[in-house]
């Protein structure tokens, strides 16, 4: 079993079993592939260099839309314009955090710096957002319902398996964030 993250002299440390690391690695890989920008977009090298992408459209996949939301609630036109200016670099920020977290999975003991912990928390959050879309978690009640699923021997279909994975990543992120909050306290 994984051990909860702790804040101590060495920074933020945690422990994951090989199977848990493998699971996280594949979840992270899935989210990275969802975030990878389409190859054919933005052929203009100068535009690509400054992160501009005039071919960008609002994502059709719900989970991707949750990862890359509109910047204005009631103005799709302005949101799209903003998306063309910023979405590419936002995708890169997210992929960067996900890749950094995946690299830390190569060892049993996870030892994180402040930056490393931030990347991990962002990566776990994005993984959870995607799982939540797949599990159709729309409100607190749905979340409670999924939360009840804790016993791996009950995992008999894709949905219950996803629910267990969601709960595992939730527990892991919560323990990480508690350690990060402690490290903020001790710096203040």
């Amino acid at each position: 079993m994984a051990k909860a993250f702790k804040y101590g002299l060495k920074g933020i440390t945690g422990f994951l079993e090989p199977a848990e690391r493998e699971l996280l690695r594949s979840l992270i890989g899935d989210v990275i592939s969802m975030l990878q920008p389409a190859e054919n977009s933005s052929k203009d090298p100068l535009a690509a260099l400054i992160g501009l992408d005039m071919d960008v459209q609002e994502p059709t996949d719900r989970a991707v839309r949750r990862l890359l939301p509109n910047v204005m609630k009631d103005d799709d036109g302005a949101s799209l314009e903003f998306r063309q200016l910023t979405e590419r670099s936002l995708r890169e920020t997210k992929i960067g955090a996900l890749r950094a977290a995946a690299l830390d999975l190569d060892k049993d003991d996870v030892v994180l710096t402040a930056d490393g912990a931030r990347h991990w928390s962002m990566a776990l959050n994005d993984v959870r957002l995607v799982l939540a879309e797949r599990l159709d978690i729309r409100d607190e009640e749905d979340a409670e319902h999924v939360h009840l699923m804790q016993d791996w021997s009950q995992a008999e279909d894709v949905e219950s398996y996803l629910a267990l994975v969601y709960n595992f990543t939730t527990w892991l992120q919560e323990s990480l964030v508690q350690a990060m909050l402690q490290s903020l306290d001790s710096r203040a």
């Binding site: 949750r66 990862l67 939301p69 609630k73 936002l90 959050n125 994005d126």
Partner: peptide, 17 residues
């Protein structure tokens, strides 16, 4: 807008108005 992009980076649902 800069804050909103940072919040989206963290995975929070942010908008500007």
């Amino acid at each position: 807008e800069r804050h909103a992009v940072a919040m989206h980076g963290f995975g929070l649902w942010a908008t500007v108005e």
